[in-house]
Design a protein around this nucleic acid. Structure first.
Lengths: 207, 207
DNA sequence: ACCCGATTACATCGTCCGTTGCATTTCATG
DNA sequence: CATGAAATGCAACGGACGATGTAATCGGGT
């Protein structure tokens, strides 16, 4: 009784977006059919067109939604680990582990979606592409850069270009992830990767 | 007379592979139609089926061919810059610049193809995926790791895991490339990125 | 000049997909 | 209970695409 279906507008739209995210992430824009998305969302094909004008609009909406969600969580992870630094190395390692935990969380499909975006670059309107860059990875990068600047100002590191340093740290933390994603399931390998990455970052920007 | 069309087998197959590479790289596996590939290759649709059983086989062939080509050149770049080291930092920077030059050379489509592969992971037979990993990025990584081990043995660096170090160097050299590929056209930005990346790598693995 | 395999143009089949129209059903609201 | 907006099921369209068959054409090797 609690979850009776409200025939009205409420959460159908969200269900569509979630289902579309799952299929776009796995199959890509072209391969993911609207019928399959409708089935995944537990919704009629026709209903999708009551909420979105066409497939492209749905795709862009999915990108924005998912990007917003993930950016929020990652920014939160950054703030939680770098707002007050006690021991820089262990704090950075913890940050890296928490970061990678997001990759295997329920937000995992988002990162498959990102790979789709990176592949579809030529077929996505540049405006949407810039918007994504700015509210997604760009925002995370800026947040991390700001934290690094604080840390540098306290004399722990020497950073001339915090934005670039933020990029370096992001890459070093998840280095092997780009080569072999299956490794994310081995806890020991993950900590080894993060520790090594943080170590290089720390000594690379030492003093 | 020199370039008379030999109606026979010779280079049609190569033309098909080249055309398919161009279209697969830009449009992805599903979006790239065989008619478009045939047109791009200056070849009849039917001829493609004289050389390949189906679209999937053509795709895998293209991946193997292009991967082989690019891995050869990149390995060559590595050997040319790290076989004899005079000044490690400038040699690494030169390596990085030569590396990035490949990304904008005539082999550029290959890296768009890689993004397609990364997106299509779920739809490519694992065997083909492993083969690609091994003959492509894996081979490059091993080659670079071997060179780094030599350098470390001579006392210039402290490297416990050369393979991981190779991964770090590859990422640090092309750091910003993942975020903004348009930057590859600005020579100053490229050298700044490479210099910064090499610097972090060098001090990160300093003895 | 002849032959044979490669190539081509063309036509076709079956399928899937995006999109729309329409009639029907569902349910919260008043 | 009546109303209306939202959702659904169904059918259909136009188009694109992978794949195959066939007959004609081309061009080099004997």
């Amino acid at each position: 009784m609690e979850k009776k279906k409200p025939a009205g507008q409420p959460d159908k739209r969200q269900a569509i977006i979630n289902g579309a995210l799952a299929l776009f992430a796995r199959d890509g824009y072209t391969r993911a059919s609207l019928d399959a998305i409708a089935a995944e969302a537990g919704v009629s094909n026709r209903t999708i067109y009551n909420h979105f004008n066409d497939k492209a609009e749905l795709f862009q909406t999915v990108i924005q939604e998912s990007t917003q969600r993930v950016a929020d969580t990652v920014v939160d992870v950054i703030d939680r680990h770098l707002s007050k630094v006690v021991d820089l190395e262990t704090d950075l390692v913890d940050l890296g582990l928490a970061w990678l935990a997001v990759l295997t969380s329920d937000l995992a499909p988002h990162f498959a979606l990102i790979r789709q975006i990176n592949a579809e670059t030529e077929h996505i309107p540049p405006a949407a592409l810039r918007l994504w860059q700015d509210t997604g990875p760009g925002r995370v990068r800026r947040e991390l850069a700001a934290r690094l600047r604080q840390i540098a100002d306290r004399g722990h590191l020497t950073i001339d270009d915090p934005t670039r340093a933020a990029g370096h740290l992001m890459l070093l933390i998840s280095a092997d992830n780009l080569a072999d994603r299956a490794m994310l399931n081995d806890k020991d390998e993950v900590t080894a990767m993060v520790s090594a990455g943080v170590h290089v970052f720390l000594y690379g920007y030492k003093r």
